[in-house]
Nucleic acid binder design. Structure first.
Lengths: 224, 224
DNA sequence: ACCTGAACACCGTTCAAGT
DNA sequence: ACCTGAACACCGTTCAAGT
């Protein structure tokens, strides 16, 4: 009953969750679709275009994804600060929802309907709260930069600094080593860093909210 | 006179500037070094490890790179706000100094001497201004997230949304299309976005400084 | 210690030909 | 319109063998 473009994108996203971006290969994808190698190129111009469509589908998640359990209840807050915080949490949630989501979006995003819709929503949301367009755009750009940069580091840590992703040797299973924990540094050369390492594990949700609070407080200060 | 590891890394960085990350191939590298394919693996465990070393070398640029001509003179400012702004500008300068610098660092960074040194410097700098370690760490994390996210988008625009990077067809020369200018959107569906597109081109240096100012102002507000 | 030469197991993409 | 089958031009990595 004839494969469609959206089936290809959906299957590619499922495959992404299973194997990660480095192992997302056109061959694995066509195998999963039960189809021959070349059939892919009837539905998609190139792998790059496919990745672009996948990235757009990931940011589509901002419209459905909840914030990632912040502790405090965002979204219930009034004013532009609470609303943009909610928006940022939803963007993070969307990126976090898929393996290598941030890397996919940051490197391959081809602005499609979902992306443009999300940007428009963010802009509209801030304008409705009385911000000038230029201010809204610049602030929105700053927020998305922060979110993408943050989740990029977050997911990189989860993959084990993205090392260990060798090509074809060894066993085929999980090959990431120490998830998240960096090797301790020499306290003599890096005193502050070592001390920080020795202290609390730093909850990522909390760190994210804290950085976001810096941004919104900064805009608030400029507005007053 | 026997190639050394640092020669390999240096040559790889030069090659990166010439062809970009997608075309940085071990074969092109060994050709440039005037050596056979397999020789590379005497000096380096894998391509991943090489990319990690390259990324570390790029962030080493924070110690030498000047801020990217902001208009206002940073670094001359006193207080932690001016100093962290200067640090952020130097990090952006280091990422911007090499083609695909942000993508390289965000995806492949293997914390080496340069990276650890930069982090330690940032931490020390803020502690010296009276910040608590936890505050310094969280703020530093927020700033680096912002910088990496920002430059990632900046360099993606320069490569033409990273599309057009096909494998082996067509002419071998430059294949990026419209550098930086996105196609105009439908003003009916995306009114705010369209209006913003119609307005000023938005100087990246200025946008970067503005977002950074939000962050520092936010921390300042929390401290008082 | 450092490199060659040749192999191995992969890739993305194209394109005639089928239905 | 949609897919097959087979080819093409690439990849990263390994490893005996040379010097």
């Amino acid at each position: 009953m004839a494969l469609h473009r959206e089936d290809v994108v959906r299957a590619a996203l499922e495959l992404l969750d299973e194997v990660g971006l480095d192992r997302l290969t056109t061959r694995a994808l066509t195998d999963r679709l039960g189809v021959q190698r070349g059939a892919l190129y009837w539905h998609v111009r190139s792998k790059q275009e496919l990745l672009g469509a996948m990235a757009d589908a990931v940011v589509a998640g901002v419209f459905t994804a909840p914030g990632t359990g912040d502790g405090a209840d965002n979204g219930a807050q009034a004013g532009w600060a609470g609303r943009t915080a909610d928006f940022a949490h939803r963007l993070r949630g969307a990126l976090l929802a898929r393996r290598d989501g941030a890397r996919l979006v940051s490197a391959h995003l081809a602005p499609g309907a979902a992306t443009l819709g999300a940007v428009e929503e963010g802009l509209a949301l801030m304008r409705a709260q009385g911000l000038a367009l230029a201010q809204a755009a610049m602030f929105g750009h700053a927020v998305t930069s922060y979110v993408i940069g943050f989740v990029l580091q977050e997911q990189a840590a989860h993959t084990g600094t993205e090392a260990g992703a060798g090509a074809g040797s060894g066993a085929d299973g999980d090959d990431r080593a120490d998830a998240g924990t960096a090797p301790p540094v020499d306290p003599r050369r890096y005193p502050h860093l070592a001390q920080w390492q020795a202290e609390q594990p730093a909850d990522p949700d909390q760190a994210f909210s804290a950085g976001l609070a810096f941004l919104t407080a900064g805009l608030a200060a400029q507005l007053s």
